[in-house]
Design a protein around this nucleic acid. Structure first.
Lengths: 228, 228
DNA sequence: GTCTATAGCATGATAGAC
DNA sequence: GTCTATCATGCTATAGAC
């Protein structure tokens, strides 16, 4: 169970290194660097820089020269890790998918009561998107210009997440916690609210709304609607 | 007062031509075509094509050759209307601002009771974004890569809209219609829900949720929260 | 007022030295 | 394993014919 954002951050051994190791091993075909240690270090830098630059000017507007400058690699060096610009997208998306799937399932799997579970799912998604804001932002903003296979992967992931929320609402309706309503529509609305947190992060910072307040506000909004 | 989407569409004389005429007259410095009638016709085509292409592949990825092909102008012809690619953004943004401001003020100005006014504002925004979906989508997605002055204009417009909703909620709280709460945060959440309608249009089409249902769902969500 | 042709430049990608 | 140097492409923007 998650108590608040502080404890979540401590809990989740974010260990970017672990994920980069997995990334490296999954992509030995396109990565031509054989020494794992250096490869992992470079991959982390490449992903980091790409996310930063792409989120500022857009992925297409970001040139590979920009990326090389920011990640402190040469053009030749970069091309040891990717075959072309689209491979960058693949690396980044895979990296985010692994972490998101792992985290959401872990935290919602630990609870069974619908109301409690809804709160856990909201917090897990929100907190994760806070920690990985750059990835969530990238993934949302570049979705429309992804290569076709990546687009499909992204849609599947989206459905999976909305399915989690929808399942919780359905369970709550059938066990009488919630009144009868359209769970699919409501889970879409919850998702929209969760997304606004990382899409319009600055707005909430200006309003001095903190993440725990945001989580409870969403929960209250939904519960006041579903519990007469 | 707006009754439903059908009547709204009929009401609003969308007359793109009127707006293009205004656009033309406001931008005689950069438009080198002197015959108003042809200029207006071309402007409408240019804006239309730009929105379509930019929303598919992104504004930066859209080349001016793409645009010329789609709008049936030559490169030289196009450059009679703009000085550079950024001028396209200016045209499009101005065009949307004029229409949005005009519509929202018109429909919310006609009502005074907060609860009624909230419903009108939700409908006006939602219906407008449905009619002008391409513009709203463009404006949201390209916001981060706008030239600095355009970015400021966009932020001002955003604030104006959120201010309208916030004002309504505050009025409702102080006249006792709503219980006391954080109106600024709530108006941000309302905005997020309104945005999801045009950002994820396909999702709601797949769910077979129509626009009038969406409007009442948002209203109910907020009222169930604010009216105990 | 609109066209075709082209200048000038920045980009993605590669070859080959170290 | 990483670098510098270079190629081919495709872009924005303009010049000049009609």
């Amino acid at each position: 169970m998650i108590s608040d954002y502080q404890s979540f951050t401590a809990d989740l051994q974010l260990s970017k290194e672990d994920i980069c190791r997995e990334l490296y091993r999954q992509n030995t075909d396109m990565i031509r660097v054989k020494k794992e240690a250096t490869a992992i270090r470079s991959l982390a830098r490449i992903i980091d820089s790409t996310l930063r630059l792409a989120n500022t000017k857009g992925f297409h507007a970001m040139t590979l020269r920009d990326l090389c400058a920011d990640s402190e690699l040469s053009m030749g060096g970069l091309y040891a890790y990717i075959r072309n610009k689209d491979d960058l997208i693949h690396l980044i998306q895979t990296h985010g998918f692994i972490l998101t799937r792992r985290t959401l399932l872990h935290y919602t799997g630990a609870v069974t009561m619908p109301r409690e579970k809804l709160y856990e799912a909201i917090k897990a998604h929100l907190f994760l998107s806070e920690l990985m804001r750059a990835w969530f932002y990238f993934s949302y903003m570049e979705a429309k210009s992804l290569p076709e296979d990546e687009k499909q992967r992204a849609i599947t992931m989206e459905r999976e997440i909305e399915g989690i929320f929808c399942g919780i609402l359905e369970a709550g309706i059938s066990n009488g916690d919630y009144r009868s309503d359209n769970p699919r529509l409501l889970s879409s609305l919850i998702k929209a609210l969760l997304q606004d947190w990382y899409l319009k992060r600055r707005k909430y910072r200006d309003q001095q709304v903190d993440i725990d307040t945001y989580a409870t506000t969403i929960l209250n909004l939904i519960e006041n609607h579903l519990i007469p």
